[in-house]
Design a protein around this nucleic acid. Structure first.
Lengths: 154, 154
DNA sequence: TGGGATTCGTTGCGATCGAGACGATTTTGC
DNA sequence: GCAAAATCGTCTCGATCGCAACGAATCCCA
């Protein structure tokens, strides 16, 4: 029986939807820091973070480090250079590549943002005890691995 | 001492970054279903899901239900109507509003997508045991509440 | 009841974005 | 060595997006 079951589907209970909404809100909450106060975009923030951790990377390494594609990196880099926060120099070892380096003011900006970002991260996670954080972290890794598998296999 | 501490900041350990990457990949994995096979965007899928759960909603209620803003709904609705999947009718009780209804083929499409989406959701979560799922769910709610608070308060 | 404020949904415009083509360079394979 | 293929980063072009303004309808309240 029940040949024509009513399909029950609640968007509010659908994990991918909930995850997208959560990520969007968290992203917006963090973007207030660097967006409202320093007029930089999310991609630019990621490039700053990449160079802050490892100054002198090539654009393609920044893309890998930051999960941005080469186009996003290229455009973010153009804006950051325009703003005087980074400099671009041709790599002598591979003259297709451009080595990117934080300027003094780029480094200063990065060092201003980092503690704010970390404070916001701490605040967001404040309701979770260590065990919950550990489960959340491992769950995110597991789901990510599955999602990547799906994307690769089509 | 340590007046000039070296700032250590790893993007890969930054929760908002990891969440954004995860959500992006999960979203892409699910969008393969309705995107590649039925040429539907994420906003359009959400509108379908809203009407699938509650046919005959006004556009503004769809926005609330689906966490889309009115413009995204308006544009998604225009495309879905163009594709013959929904119809638009002025609400007699409030002639500013438009009542949106799935057509037969809209409902058919929705009923085709739902099991595929649920299967993909199940697959994504397959590595998590019930306890992990419960912690993940509650953690997502707690973090979302904090993020919304930050956004409201600026 | 009437006039200003608000809400609903759409649209115009400028900014932004992604896919693909491109020049320049390097790597690969024979 | 050298031609073909691959890689790096940029650019172009059409599509998409968000902001703000808008017309129409309704609500508010004096």
């Amino acid at each position: 029986m029940a040949k024509h079951e009513v399909i029950a589907f609640a968007l509010a209970d659908f994990f991918p939807y909930r995850l997208a909404v959560l990520a969007e809100h968290v992203s917006q909450a963090v973007a207030q820091l660097y967006g409202d106060r320093f007029q930089i975009t999310r991609a630019e923030w990621r490039v700053l973070a990449a160079l802050g951790a490892n100054n002198g990377m090539a654009a393609k390494d920044i893309a890998a480090y930051s999960t941005l594609d080469k186009m996003q990196v290229s455009r973010a880099v153009a804006r950051l250079e325009e703003a005087g926060l980074i400099t671009r120099a041709t790599d002598d070892a591979d003259r297709r590549a451009k080595i990117l380096t934080l300027t003094a003011s780029g480094r200063t900006l990065f060092q201003k943002i980092v503690p704010l970002a970390q404070a916001r991260e701490d605040y967001l996670l404040e309701d979770l005890d260590p065990q919950e954080r550990a489960v959340l972290e491992s769950a995110m890794e597991k789901v990510l691995a599955r999602a990547q598998g799906l994307i690769e296999r089509g």
